[in-house]
């Protein structure tokens, strides 16, 4: 029944986090800082992961395409749809859960064990909202842009790898990525991204906020934040796919 306790406490935390901020100008500054941190700060890892992910998808698709009746442009279609529908929103969110989720949990957890959160509370400030809301809003606003960049770089990585390895011609690949394109897939990917952004940041903030003890427990909170947000990303990936695409 431990999960029920956490579920209840998580909802209480979300309710507190979403209560009216004390002073919007302070939250605005925090929001800008987090946008820079989550967006610009994540570009390196996102770019690297996306290019290699696109490259591997393309080469593996070519390797598995043994039927001579299937045109080579199908490789572009498969790479594009895999990247847009699944790899960019879900895999990037898992990567960001590791990078941003652990950072949020350890930052807030350290503030808890060093009494910085108590100091905020003493001043009459809603600490849950002050510490978490700018992070959650920043992630919801910036993650879609990060994922769109990831989609572009993934498809680009596939083209580079495919043509450099000589397994597909540039024309076939470009024809493939333009063929039977469904714009709603982008909307679906962004719906998933926004959901994952909320889960990553709120779950990490929750674990950090409820840290008790010292340095060891801060590490445990950080690990728990990554583990639980990753599990929730996979569960919600399935739920959203089932709800929206079928």
């Amino acid at each position: 029944m431990n999960w029920l306790f956490h579920l209840g406490r998580y909802w209480m935390f979300i309710k507190e986090m979403l209560s009216r901020p004390e002073k919007l100008s302070i939250y605005w500054k925090q929001l800008l800082r987090e946008l820079d941190n989550f967006g610009y700060g994540s570009l390196g890892i996102v770019a690297l992961t996306s290019v290699f992910m696109g490259a591997v998808i393309t080469i593996q698709t070519v390797y598995n395409l043994v039927n001579p009746l299937v045109p080579m442009s199908a490789v572009g279609i498969v790479a594009r749809d895999s990247i847009i529908l699944e790899f960019s929103p879900t895999m990037m969110s898992l990567v960001l859960a590791g990078k941003i989720g652990s950072s949020i949990a350890s930052e807030i957890g350290t503030m808890r064990v060093t009494e910085q959160i108590d100091a905020i509370e003493i001043m009459g400030i809603n600490s849950a909202s002050y510490l978490s809301l700018p992070k959650v809003v920043a992630a919801i606003l910036i993650f879609p842009f990060v994922v769109i960049i990831s989609m572009f770089l993934g498809i680009f990585g596939g083209w580079i790898a495919g043509t450099l390895a000589g397994v597909i011609s540039s024309a076939d690949y470009i024809n493939g990525i333009q063929d039977s394109f469904v714009p709603f897939n982008i909307v679906f990917a962004l719906i998933k991204t926004v959901t994952f952004a909320f889960l990553i940041t709120s779950v990490a903030a929750y674990h950090g906020y409820h840290t008790e003890g010292g340095a060891l427990e801060v590490g445990q909170s950080s690990t728990n934040a990554v583990v639980y947000s990753s599990i929730l990303i996979l569960v919600f990936d399935y739920i959203l796919t089932q709800l929206i695409l079928t």
């Binding site: 350290t110 503030m111 060093t114 009494e115 910085q116 108590d118 100091a119 003493i122």
Partner: peptide, 13 residues
């Protein structure tokens, strides 16, 4: 109306 000095200072890092 309350000011508090914590054991470790609790300054915001």
């Amino acid at each position: 109306e309350i000011g508090m000095v914590f054991q470790g200072g609790a300054l915001f890092d």
